[in-house]
């Protein structure tokens, strides 16, 4: 039985590895049009993408928009989650329901809503990177909520606050000096997971800003017809980035807060 399991596992691993291997071959292969394997290998397509100023600019834009959205999300969500968990359980219940909304409502519907809201003069942000930042903020909420809430559950925060009050220390001081350091790995986990999602996001970017603010995904879309090797090189880069972020998130999620 264990032997049979290992056969199935190997087959499953091979099946999952196949797209990755194919992408690597496509990115580094030359003359791959007739045979099962490419005729030769070279790094021209990968080097070409990595040195392409347009790619670098798109990557920079993606990182900037994602970073701004994640920062804004963290600033909004961490205090809200803490407040809900510690002081207002009713708010906490609402948060748990609300954070899934960006995923429960189809992206296209949300985008149409955003375009209407942000077309009026006072909030006229359509076509600017800011609308993308604001649209990305709610997408990050579930990552923060799930990872931080998981860390908070089980921490004796009420006791810490009581101990602080008896020492004459304000709640803010206990939150800053004890609670935040204890949940820091989970906040970072929320950032890493959020970054993984935002770097791969296409629907919002395409519909809200499109070619006016070319992000990584828009660049990838624009390059799709140029050459198979170039597309494969972009996908390979993107895949390796997501793989690194996933590895980082796995490592962070193993860092349980000390009880």
């Amino acid at each position: 039985m264990p032997r049979l399991s290992s056969v199935f596992l190997t087959l499953a691993a091979a099946l999952f590895a196949l797209p990755f291997v194919t992408i690597v071959l496509a990115a580094f292969g030359t003359g791959w049009s007739t045979g099962l394997l490419p005729e030769g290998l070279d790094t021209a397509a990968v080097a070409g993408v990595l040195t392409d100023p347009r790619f670098q600019a798109a990557l920079g834009r993606s990182l900037a928009v994602s970073g701004a959205a994640l920062l804004l999300s963290a600033v909004l969500m961490v205090p809200a989650i803490l407040a809900g968990h510690i002081y207002w359980p009713a708010l906490d219940r609402w948060l748990a329901r609300l954070v899934v909304l960006p995923y429960a409502v189809p992206g296209v519907v949300l985008v149409v809503g955003y375009l209407r809201v942000f077309s009026h003069p006072a909030l006229a942000l359509n076509g600017t990177p800011w609308i993308l930042v604001l649209a990305y903020v709610p997408l990050c909420f579930p990552m923060f909520y799930v990872s931080i809430k998981g860390a908070l559950t089980g921490l004796p925060i009420a006791d810490w606050l009581d101990a602080g009050r008896l020492m004459g220390l304000r709640d803010e001081r206990i939150l800053a000096r004890v609670v935040l350091p204890m949940i820091a790995p989970q906040i970072l986990l929320g950032v890493v997971l959020g970054l993984g999602i935002l770097l791969g996001e296409f629907v919002y970017a395409n519909m809200l800003v499109g070619g006016r603010f070319e992000t990584l995904q828009i660049y990838m879309y624009a390059k799709r017809t140029e050459s198979g090797a170039v597309t494969a090189a972009i996908i390979l880069f993107y895949f390796l980035t997501i793989l690194s972020l996933t590895a980082a998130s796995v490592a962070l999620s193993r860092q349980r807060p000390a009880r």
């Binding site: 004796p156 006791d159 101990a163 008896l166 004459g168 204890m182 000390a258």
Partner: peptide
Amino acid sequence: PPADRGLAMVFQHYALFPNM
């Protein structure tokens, strides 16, 4: 307020600050 009462308390699960 609690801090001005001249009391101290030992909690059931100690309430030690784990990062200190």
